Simulated scan of single mutants.
Amino acid sequence: MRGLCRVGNVEKAFEFFNSMESFGCLPDLITYNTLINGLCRVGNVDRAQMLLREIEKHPEFSPDVVTYTSIISGYCKSGRMEKAVTLFDEMIQRGIRPNLFTFNIVIDGFSKKGDSDSALMMYEKALNGGLKPDVVMFTSIIDSHCRTGDLDKSMKLWDEMNKRQVSPNVFTFSILIHALCKANRLNESRDLLRRLNLRKDIIPSPFIYNPVIDGFCKAGNLDEANSIVAEMEAKGCVHDKMTFTILILGHCMKGRTFEAIDIYKKMLSVGCAPDNITMSSLTSCLRKAGMASEANEIELSASKNMKSGLSSLEKTTHLMTNMNIPVAV
C-alpha cells in the first residue's frame, strides 16, 4: 500500500485496504496514515479528512501528529489555509502536540499566500511551545516578509537566526539576496554574497550571483561586478547564459566594447550559446561605437551557423573560428 501510494496509485492501494479483513488482517493507525498521506499527495485532501473522521470512531487507536500533519500539509499545498488552521487548532484541542514539521508546513503555507503576519504568529507559537526553530522555519518566514516587501523584518529575522546559531542554507541566502537587489540595496546583498562565499559547504548556482552582478552593472560599477564574477569562478560556480548576457550588456552600456567582445568570446569558448538579446545588444553597441564591421561579422557568422544546421558544439566552434578565436582541438 505504501509503495502504491508513493507512485500515486491510491485507488489500487484502497483495493488492498478493502481486502485486508478477508485475510484476517485488520488495518491499524499506520495503515490509515499511509492512505491519508497517499490521498494528500494526489491532492484529494477532503477524502483524507474523511479517513481522519473514520479513525476518530475507532475503538483501538486514535489519530496522531502524523495523521493531522499529513492533512494539514495537503491543505497548505492547495492554498486552503483556513482548513489547515482549523485542523491545526483541532489537533491541539485533542491534546496532540504539533511538532516542528507541522509548524514549518503551516508557516510555509502562509508564506506562499503572502500572509507574513500569520506566518510570524505561527513562529511565535512554536517558540512559546518550547520548539527550537530550524533553518526551514526561518527561511519560510524570511521569504514571507520578502514577498510582502518588508525587508527590514526579514533582516531582523536574519539577525535572530544568527543569534540562535542556526546556519542559513542556500535558499535563505538566495531569497534575501534577490529581495535586496530588487529593492536596490546592493551593498547589503553584496555583504551577504561575501558571507556565502565563505561557506565551504555551499557551492551557489549562478542565479544567486546574477542579480547582484546585474545590480552593479546597472549602477555603472563594473569593477565590483567583475570582482563578483572572479569570486564566482573561484567558488567553482560556472557562468550561465544570463551571467554572460548581464556582463555583455553592462560593459556595452559603459562603452567598454572591447571588454564586451572578450566576454562574448569567453561565452562561446565554454559552449554557452548566446540568445537574440545577447546578440542584438552586442551588435547594437558595436555599431554605436563605430565598429560596424565587427558587428556585421558577428551577425554573419551566427546567421551561417543557423542556416547550416550544425550542432550546438559545432556552431560554437565554427563561430569562434570565424572570429579568429583560438580553438582547442
Rank of each mutant, 00 (worst) to 15 (best):
L52K: 08
F138D: 09
D89W: 13
E188V: 07
A48Q: 06
E160W: 07
T69D: 10
D143Q: 05
I107S: 10
C252V: 12
K241G: 12
R194N: 13
L247N: 05
P168K: 09
F23W: 08
M122W: 05
L196S: 10
E299W: 00
K182C: 00
M306N: 10
S301Q: 10
S174K: 09
R199S: 06
S281T: 15
G129R: 04
P59M: 11
Y123D: 04
S174D: 06
F110Y: 11
A13R: 06
D89V: 13
L100R: 02
C237A: 00
L193V: 04
Y68H: 14
T139A: 11
N44R: 14
F17C: 13
S78P: 01
F17W: 03
I277C: 12
N324Q: 04
S269T: 14
T243Q: 10
C272R: 03
I261Q: 05
V85D: 06
M50F: 13
G8F: 04
K235R: 14
R41D: 11
N324L: 06
I30A: 08
D223A: 14
A295G: 01
L249K: 15
D159P: 02
S205H: 10
S167P: 01
G74E: 08
H318Q: 14
L193F: 07
C25F: 14
F244N: 10
V327K: 05
E90Y: 09
G255C: 08
N322M: 08
A84P: 00
R47W: 05
C237D: 09
N221D: 15
T34I: 05
I202M: 01
